[in-house]
Design a protein around this nucleic acid. Structure first.
Lengths: 237, 237
DNA sequence: CGCCGTATTGAGCGCTCTCAACGAGGGTGG
DNA sequence: CCACCCTCGTTGAGAGCGCTCAATACGGCG
């Protein structure tokens, strides 16, 4: 097995693509979603929804990137996920009948389809296929989140950043080119909040990686040079 | 609203009882489970299953406590959950078609019902009610796990221990008596691994709580004295 | 009574945080 | 086009939290 596959394999338990994969639904179901959806456009930095909002519906991201973050009473911010084109989100609190636990903010200019909650629930009720898709997906996500708790509870900054970069590389891959080295274009504060550290410590750790030729930085962009070394460093095996 | 309710309310987004609540299933479904189940007994410290095992079935815990833990390549241990009587577990990797991501170990002598995977899947296929129960439950758990990631990523040991004790109090409550102050009987190493810290730091933090009359310790047992102070300290609001 | 596993205490170090200053780069208005 | 400003990124210094290693105390059991 080559390095690229080995890493993809290793990451499997540690991140997930959206649970609702449109490609796995029937033509009819896709048509229903299309018909009931509204088109939305968001400017960079625009807020799609806030924590404690009542969930309004499901969002299918067609273009751009959305960060999902949680802000504590003391102002500290944790970036939990970054969704990219092709992913759907916002449905879990609808199913669980709770309020949004997180904020959703556009990292770039975005285009999305919005399916109102009532239509989503109608679809879910009528489609055993969707229901099963969700069940399987959520079960897998459970594993991923457990692994992530472990990561945060047990690992230092270097390991967490190495891991974060590998996941972000998957997220940013192929959005512009076909090479495995994605152009990870993210500002330092968001990255720090994703890794769960301070801005300064993030910058220093990134510099450390840079000096050791694990990554290369250019402006906001980060390119991974040595995947295998990062993978080993992340210690997720 | 009194303090006890306020705390229970506040904890809602941060822990969960088992997703499969037998009380919510029909008589027929419960009968099916009864009929297909095997009775198991486990001695304290016995291992029910290991990470990387193929999941064999679903476990309904009738008596005792089970810890769910993950061990890293370097030997560090993270205790993720503690299940107590009335809870069911082990079904997620069956649904998600993956290997067990964790170990399950008896904290005390245990009695459980074991429903083989094939029977569980048959039941799931036939019961829309169970399927919905799982969907709602897993969606809620998603929120809980997100909140927990935040806790580990952003909070110090004092806050995490305060939180852990409140959750464990819920878990150990009413197992022997009717007072809200549960007898949290857990060894220091397991508690340290649950909080995500070293044994020594855990002991010191516990001593700090003790000196400030937040908790009272007696042998292995921990009793919470000042719920509200712990709740505020945990900073989960 | 002695032994073994568990709990507690002590000392010292290293990682990560905070506070503070400085630099770079992009956008705006003159 | 340039000067300025504002935001973001980088670097430095020092403090504190939490870890490791090591020694000591405790408690149940043979």
């Amino acid at each position: 097995m080559n390095t690229e596959n080995k890493i993809e394999q290793g990451l499997r338990g540690f991140h997930f693509k959206s649970v609702i994969d449109l490609a796995k639904l029937s033509m009819e179901e896709r048509g229903f979603i299309q018909g009931k959806s509204l088109q939305l456009k968001l400017k960079k930095k625009a807020v799609l929804y806030w924590a404690h909002d009542k969930p309004k519906g499901v969002y299918f991201l067609k273009k751009g990137k959305i960060k999902i973050e949680q802000i504590s009473y003391d102002g500290s911010v944790q970036v939990l996920f970054i969704y990219c084109a092709g992913e759907a989100f916002g449905f879990r609190p609808i199913i669980g009948q709770e309020l949004q636990p997180v904020n959703a903010v556009a990292l770039e200019d975005c285009e999305l389809d919005f399916l109102p909650a009532v239509d989503f629930l109608a679809l879910l009720k009528s489609s055993v296929k969707l229901s099963n898709l969700l069940l399987v997906g959520l079960s897998h996500e459970f594993t991923v989140l457990i692994n992530r708790i472990n990561l945060f509870a047990q690992r230092g900054i270097k390991e967490r950043l190495a891991f974060a970069l590998l996941v972000l590389n998957e997220k940013y891959k192929y959005s512009n080119s076909l090479v495995p080295e994605a152009d990870i274009k993210i500002n330092r504060t968001d990255l720090a909040n994703y890794v769960g550290t301070s801005l300064e410590t993030l910058v220093r750790t990134l510099k450390y990686f840079n000096e050791r030729k694990l990554v290369r930085t250019k402006g906001k962009s980060i390119f991974i040079i040595n995947f295998e070394a990062l993978f080993i460093l992340s210690g997720i095996q």
